[in-house]
Design a protein around this nucleic acid. Sequence first.
DNA 1: GCAATCCGTTAAAGCGCTTTAATCGTGGTG
DNA 2: CACCACGATTAAAGCGCTTTAACGGATTGC
Lengths: 341, 341
Amino acid sequence: MSVEEPVRRPRLQDVAHEAGVSTATASLVLRGAPGPGGATRERVLAAAGRLGYRPDRAASLLARRRSRLIGVVMDVRSTFHAQLVEEVHEAAERHGYDLVLSAVTRNRDEARAVETLLDSRCEALVLLGSEAPTARLAALDRQLPVVAVGRPVPSAGVDVVRAADDEGVAMAVDHLAGLGHRRIAYVDGGRGPIAAGRRRGYQRGMRRHRLGGHLQVVAGDPGEESGARAARTLFREGRGPTAVVAYNDHCAVGLLDALLRDDVDVPGAVSVVGYDDSPLARLAHVDLTTVSQESELLVRHAVEAVVERLDGGRTEHREVVVPPRLVVRGTTGPPRDDGSL
Amino acid sequence: MSVEEPVRRPRLQDVAHEAGVSTATASLVLRGAPGPGGATRERVLAAAGRLGYRPDRAASLLARRRSRLIGVVMDVRSTFHAQLVEEVHEAAERHGYDLVLSAVTRNRDEARAVETLLDSRCEALVLLGSEAPTARLAALDRQLPVVAVGRPVPSAGVDVVRAADDEGVAMAVDHLAGLGHRRIAYVDGGRGPIAAGRRRGYQRGMRRHRLGGHLQVVAGDPGEESGARAARTLFREGRGPTAVVAYNDHCAVGLLDALLRDDVDVPGAVSVVGYDDSPLARLAHVDLTTVSQESELLVRHAVEAVVERLDGGRTEHREVVVPPRLVVRGTTGPPRDDGSL
DNA sequence: GCAATCCGTTAAAGCGCTTTAATCGTGGTG
DNA sequence: CACCACGATTAAAGCGCTTTAACGGATTGC
């Protein structure tokens, strides 16, 4: 900042004074509210322009009945979330809402992120890939409309917009089984509700193909590291699976990494499928077969759900389940052997 | 949201009443300000707990002299920025500041992102990888302390914390030349100031090794796509370079993708170097040789710069230039031929 | 020509919190 | 025992904006 005396930022009062009207009129004009006539409008607008007036958001928030603010919780490490955020921005704007972003990081958990948003007068919350316990979500929902994106919230009033993850993973299994794989393993995503749904999909998918005897779930979490660890576990000794479905793309990429390091041919020796169709998976370099959650659709529904609560007076619960879509890329192919015992 | 009447959220007044004190005392206690005695403190704290009181941030912002808010502009698409944001969170917290995030997306430009922050009463701005013209930054800096992270801002009062990008790229060239490469190309990052510095580093590096005759800069931008396009240009016909330095990791990964698709061996036939040491580069799968900006150090300096302006009364300009560090991974090696004409 | 009507404008009361100056006890002091 | 100093507490004035009810003046209708 330069050394000069910092000029006090102009207030509404300054604009009003400059335009020769009351602050009430100035406020009305600047927000495009009906009332003030054409000539007045122009005078105020001109004055505001001359002074470089920008309304003070804190003051406006405090005075306004509504904040028109939607809080968004995202995991800053996830490329999938990054993409969702882009889309939430657009969707919210279309409905005349603004966003407040709150990041989950290594040492800033979801509860913390939510608190910031509550303190910021958000009217509703969009939780991307929340891992919070159902009860907490239900409690939150008692305070303000909440929509959970990408995870189920059993038996709570919370709105949900998600892909049918179980179906999604089952589709991945279908795809692999169709290629002739039988020993298909799954890298789990931890104890959260999202992981549970996907795990179930894997189990169902396998049984559907009478592959229950080949069920193999290894522990994991949503990070790249866990994929690499899973690879070590799966291929430690003897004969590993011919295909692996991972909890998400990040995890799948970690798995690919480890395989690559060990000179395991993908998809020749092992096929790999991820989940999310994040920007990561689309890198030609990675070229990961994955399951898309149709992020744009997901986000559109989520924002609409929130807006209907706020502006449409909807009070009944809503759950939108979007069918996932298998995106076949380069990491899957027929198994080298026939997959038999 | 459930159907029940939404309970009005408790105000300071409610807490004060519940504790049998004035709002002044309650405010003092809740902020840990000196004054109220032990017994009173406990009563107020207990009351606040009982009511589940959370201070209203908008009101508090409005009333307070200081907001203790630092605005951060980030590009939501950049994994490098994501990492920086994590670190900014921690650094800011150490100094007792809170963050307001504002994302640059496909259709939300930097100016827009900055406006949101200005309206939010931020006391200072941390701009990650800003591409705004110097004049605009200078103007901004007249309103509040601004620190640009990762880019130079010539001849403006704006504080700058950045890596010596020219040196960084030159180090990459050194590394490649040392391996025996001579035809080393560079994929540019566009017209911004960051790109300019890195381009200059490339040119200097090449001349330093008497490789001026092999200078080859192809147009690009910070995305993956541009790397892929560059590959097509560089290896379109005949003999391409034996090594390529890219503007950043995303661009390098795009380049790697394209090479991989064409079955070009990396680093056998072509070596590739990125820039940023983003999480992307570290994926074992990508395993990209790159130049690290020492993000943690960068962020620490940036936050300190801002805090010194705000709390330390510093007024003179500061520019911190951190030496970059070459991180050699798997995408670089000696050229197949000797690199001669 | 006077009341009814209407439109543009404004005074004033907040929004929920912070902060400063003033007030109230209390115990120590001469 | 009157007086003072001092720490704990509070009244009250904002912070910058929104919003509602009220207002004045210009039309309009009868």
